[in-house]
């Protein structure tokens, strides 16, 4: 079916997996944006920190469960620190100032990693067996591809249940619609923000686990490019609501995975140009988001 585009099943499966991972990152960025109106450019550095935790754990020979626990612990502690030291003092400032501040945090964390681990990085090997293929009726698909999709779907389902079925979820949805009004009606701001930041951190840890399986070499700029692409995807999808943001993240991951496999080798180096040209075109046609209906205006 897709033979004319030069796409095989492996490429298609990888594109879906990349899309799922990007969807999780998109939700992580979108959750914080929802309650704080803050675009966290340093999100990729949380993923990077989690990836280094995994790499160090596998260097020390820790079992898999312990290294994943370490990854979660590191990312969650860093998320809370980021909230306490940077996001909280910045609350209520202009979006431009907040964005440049998270830019500064991102570069700060990246240079700490550079100083600590060196430019060559470390290798995370404890989950490497997931990179081996499963054969499903003559088609070879890497285990991590399937694991990524399943984990992403599970995470999104759990998150959906949390947002729709619990009291804190209701508070979060109310805050992302209108924070001031929600506060007046008794929503506790610090609690909602802390939960959003923690959830976003937990998603970053999940993403760190899956990205290190796909790409075991962890360097200080790990996940930096992914964050830029996901940010573009989130804005293309529609920043204000979780579902459009998720779809935006998924679409851009899926599109870059598919295009990366479909482009002939002499053009594949221009993948970024194609993706970002598409981003610009979509933004020009639908500046409020590809998957949104309501009109909202945000000033940066």
């Amino acid at each position: 079916m897709l033979a004319f585009l030069n796409i095989d099943w492996q490429t298609l499966a990888d594109a879906v997996a990349l899309g799922s991972i990007y969807a999780l990152m998109a939700v992580g960025i979108g959750l914080v944006f929802g309650v704080l109106r803050l675009v966290n450019f340093a999100y990729g550095q949380l993923v990077m920190a989690g990836a280094f935790a995994l790499a160090m754990a596998s260097e020390w020979g820790w079992p898999v469960w312990a290294s994943i626990a370490l990854c979660f612990a590191v990312v969650l502690v860093l998320s809370l620190l980021m909230d306490r030291l940077v996001f909280r003092p910045l609350r209520g400032h202009s979006p431009a100032v907040m964005l440049v501040a998270t830019f500064a945090v991102a570069f700060l964390m990246q240079s700490v990693a550079l100083l600590w681990f060196g430019p060559l990085g470390k290798i995370a090997t404890s989950l490497a067996y997931l990179n081996r293929p499963w054969t499903i009726s003559t088609v070879d698909i890497r285990k991590i591809t399937i694991v990524s999709v399943v984990v992403a779907v599970l995470c999104l389902l759990l998150l959906h249940l949390l947002l729709e079925r619990t009291e804190i979820g209701l508070h979060m949805r109310a805050s992302s619609m209108d924070f001031e009004t929600a506060r007046m009606l008794g929503v506790r701001a610090n609690r909602v923000i802390a939960v959003a930041v923690l959830l976003s951190g937990a998603l970053a840890a999940v993403v760190a686990v899956m990205l290190t399986v796909q790409n075991p070499l962890v360097t200080p700029d790990f996940a930096l490019r992914d964050t830029i692409v996901v940010l573009a995807g989130v804005v293309v999808g529609g920043m204000n609501r979780p579902v459009p943001a998720t779809l935006g993240g998924f679409s851009i991951g899926f599109a870059s995975g598919l295009l990366g496999g479909a482009l002939p080798t002499n053009q594949s180096q221009y993948l970024d140009s194609f993706i970002f040209a598409a981003v610009i075109i979509v933004l020009l046609v639908r500046p409020n988001g590809l998957f949104t209906t309501a009109k909202t205006v945000e000033r940066v």
């Binding site: 979006p95 964005l99 804005v235 981003v279 933004l283 940066v300």
Partner: peptide, 8 residues
């Protein structure tokens, strides 16, 4: 304008 301009 806004975030769309920033990302573009």
């Amino acid at each position: 304008s806004g975030l769309a301009a920033g990302i573009a």
